[in-house]
């Protein structure tokens, strides 16, 4: 297997639909691909004790996070027959309704991408040191914990 260098997955602010659309378009030249699968994480307006979340501010231990993303990518390529894989996550403020994570996998065959995307999302949620401050409409906040 060829060596892949760690990539920086972090983007400041939300991930735009233009960015996602362009990523899809870039794969039209890769004609061995028969199936793509995409996961988009969107910031939800949770209501907690009568207050509504209006945004999440993301921070990360970036060195470790990039290394973990790299380990997860390598493990996913080992487990599944994928042609390519892209992972992006926001840092800074992402408002409710905006996209904070974009995971994109491609393979010659559909079954691989369904399994790979679920594996990837779970790995990112449990192994990557990313922290989220949920800011309410009245400017108070609480810290998000993945369940």
């Amino acid at each position: 297997m060829k060596e892949r260098k760690p990539k920086n997955v972090f983007q400041e602010g939300p991930i735009s639909s233009e960015f996602i659309g362009n990523s899809i378009a870039k794969h039209q030249s890769k004609t061995s691909i028969g199936a793509h699968n995409i996961f988009l994480g969107q910031v939800r307006a949770d209501e907690i004790d009568g207050k509504t979340v209006k945004a999440i501010q993301y921070t990360a231990y970036e060195d470790m996070a990039n290394e973990k993303f790299h380990e997860i990518r390598e493990a996913t390529f080992e487990k599944f027959n994928l042609t390519c894989m892209h992972i992006y996550h926001s840092l800074g403020e992402v408002k409710t309704g905006e996209i904070c994570m974009f995971i994109f996998v491609s393979s010659p065959r559909r079954k691989e991408v369904f399994k790979a995307i679920e594996y990837l999302v779970e790995e990112v949620k449990t192994k990557v040191p990313i922290f989220g401050k949920e800011v309410f409409e009245d400017a108070t906040h609480q810290w998000k914990v993945n369940s």
């Binding site: 231990y61 996070a65 996550h89 949620k125 449990t126 040191p129 914990v145 993945n146």
Partner: peptide
């Protein structure tokens, strides 16, 4: 590094 619970995704 001291890391609180993760919240990515």
């Amino acid at each position: 590094a001291l890391l609180p619970p993760f919240a990515g995704g």
